[in-house]
Simulated scan of single mutants.
Amino acid sequence: MRSATVRLGEFSDCLLAGLLVALASVPLVTAAPAFVAGCRVLDRARRDIGGPLWTTYWADFRRAARGGIPFTVACGVAVVLFAVDLEVVAAMPGAGVLRVALGVLAVAGAVVAVRTCEVVATDAAPWRQAVLTAARETAASPRNALLTATALGVSAVLVWMLPILALIMAGPLALAAVATGGRR
């Protein structure tokens, strides 16, 4: 019976982390530090390290916010540029092939962004170094990158089907990012 209790505890930690990430992400520029804190508390919960999730989350969030806000802004700029590129490509000949190529690049960029947050959370690396590490690991381990992309896709479909799930979906996504990190 203890096994079922432990699993239910891990599940509730995952959902609570998702709610905390959603709450901390209300000002959009804090989305990356919020996700990093979610990854960090779930990594510690998986290893049975640390104190209560609520208090450790906010301490981790404050620590990650220093370099994470510029990273979030850069990701937002990349999304806007991607949207502009899609509009420009629509008017070009061969738009179907170019859209597919842009889609693959967008998925790769999203995977690198999620893995960057995971690297910052688990290795306590500076943000710039974490981006390089995440890009290197994504290229070196396509299996883990595919698992992360699948987690992103499933999260997007679930939120599309039931938008209220956006409040908790960051928790399972953070757990997936930590689980596919591959450095431990």
Results as ranks from 00 to 15, higher is better:
A17V: 08
A17W: 01
A17G: 15
G18W: 00
L19A: 14
L19I: 09
L20C: 11
L20V: 10
A22H: 14
A22N: 09
L23I: 14
A24D: 06
S25E: 09
V26T: 12
P27Q: 01
L28K: 02
L28I: 15
V29D: 12
T30S: 15
A31H: 03
A32R: 07
A32P: 12
P33V: 02
P33H: 07
V36G: 12
V36A: 12
A37I: 00
G38I: 01
G38R: 02
C39T: 04
C39Y: 00
R40A: 12
R40P: 04
R40F: 02
L42G: 10
L42C: 11
L42W: 04
D43P: 03
R44I: 09
R44L: 15
A45Q: 04
R46D: 15
R46Y: 12
R47I: 01
R47H: 11
D48Q: 09
I49F: 13
G50S: 06
G50D: 07
G51K: 00
G51H: 04
G51C: 02
G51V: 03
P52K: 09
P52N: 06
P52E: 12
L53A: 11
L53Y: 11
W54N: 09
T55D: 14
T56F: 00
W58L: 03
A59P: 03
A59Q: 14
D60C: 11
F61Y: 14
F61W: 14
R62I: 03
A64I: 00
R66N: 09
R66V: 08
G67V: 02
G68A: 04
G68V: 01
I69H: 02
P70I: 06
F71R: 04
V73D: 00
A74S: 14
A74N: 13
C75D: 06
C75L: 15
G76V: 03
V77L: 14
V79Q: 06
V80W: 13
V80H: 11
A83T: 10
D85V: 01
D85I: 02
L86A: 08
L86C: 10
V88A: 15
A90P: 11
A91Y: 12
A91V: 06
P93Q: 03
P93A: 09
A95I: 00
G96V: 06
G96T: 10
V97N: 02
V97S: 10
L98D: 01
R99C: 08
A101Y: 12
A101M: 13
L102H: 05
L105H: 05
L105E: 10
A106K: 07
A106T: 05
V107E: 05
V107S: 09
A108C: 13
G109F: 03
A110Y: 00
V111S: 03
V112T: 12
V112F: 05
A113D: 00
R115N: 10
C117Q: 12
C117H: 07
E118I: 02
V119E: 09
V119D: 07
V119S: 07
T122Q: 11
T122F: 01
D123F: 05
A124H: 11
A124C: 03
A125N: 10
P126T: 05
W127R: 05
W127Q: 04
W127P: 11
W127I: 13
R128M: 14
Q129C: 06
Q129F: 08
Q129K: 08
Q129T: 14
Q129S: 15
A130H: 06
V131P: 10
T133P: 08
T133W: 06
A134W: 11
A134C: 14
A134Y: 13
